[in-house]
């Protein structure tokens, strides 16, 4: 199992009030799966993704990533996990402004202490993989939304992660571009990469092999979806 969540809860204290964003979530994701997480706004999808991404710690429960219990690891170890095992893709792309695509893609390798020449070689290779071979020198403002998301995907891939986490990756894209990005995801998944993706569009979720639906911080359903690999 790549991911194993057991009875995960996450409470936020807002003033006097306690917001229970997650209340006892348990699921496991095997290597090579493509999972869509669905649910209404505020149902706890992003909170769950943040915990999966080691950006946040659960209030209760156990989280095993690649067999390692993440809950008690110190901050630097979490940073290393994010760097080596995880790749993030965001709704808003989150590329560095005024920075060429190539350097954006190289960024995780910098923090992995990869030497400059190899960094460049690997970054160019993933840019080619996502279909942006000729755009290495373009900055965000010179790229379309779909292209920016491809740069972000290249950045997530460059360190050969075990797990890709995508929070509404098509949320800012038109439907044609969304379909292209989903095709890319499916291709990557066929190549063996595990993907967990948040979306609230059924069409997008249909690209995944399994869909988990959240409601009020709990899992409502966990079903195999139409196409994709099971």
């Amino acid at each position: 199992m790549v991911v194993q969540l057991s009875d995960i809860s996450r409470d936020y204290q807002v003033g006097e009030q306690q917001v229970r964003a997650l209340r006892g979530v348990s699921f496991a994701v095997a290597a090579g799966e493509f999972v869509a997480i669905m649910g209404a706004s505020g149902s706890g999808k992003s909170t769950c993704m943040n915990i999966l991404g080691c950006l946040d710690r659960p209030t209760g429960g156990r989280y095993l990533l690649d067999g390692v219990e993440v809950g008690r690891l110190p901050g630097d170890d979490l940073a290393a996990l994010r760097n080596r095992k995880l790749g993030f893709i965001f709704q808003g792309f989150n590329l560095l402004p005024r920075t060429p695509a190539l350097e954006n893609v190289e960024l995780p390798l910098i923090y992995a202490r990869v030497p400059a020449a190899e960094r460049r070689r690997r970054a160019l290779a993933v840019l080619e993989q996502v279909g942006l071979a000729g755009r290495a020198d373009h900055t965000s403002s010179q790229l379309s939304g779909g292209q920016q998301q491809r740069v972000a995907i290249a950045r997530a891939l460059v360190n050969q992660p075990t797990l890709i986490l995508a929070d509404e990756p098509t949320g800012n894209l038109d439907s044609a571009t969304s379909a292209e990005i989903m095709a890319l995801f499916q291709e990557l998944n066929r190549g063996g990469i595990t993907i967990i993706m948040v979306t609230h569009e059924a069409e997008i979720a249909a690209c995944a092999g399994r869909s988990i639906t959240f409601r009020d911080g709990q899992i409502l359903s966990d079903l195999p979806a139409g196409q994709g690999r099971a």
């Binding site: 940073a79 994010r82 993030f88 989150n94 995780p108 950045r155």
Partner: peptide, 16 residues
């Protein structure tokens, strides 16, 4: 701020 968030998410340690 956002750049810092990106760097942290990508694997920068606080020291970095």
């Amino acid at each position: 701020t956002r750049e810092i968030g990106i760097r942290l998410a990508i694997g920068a340690r606080r020291r970095d």
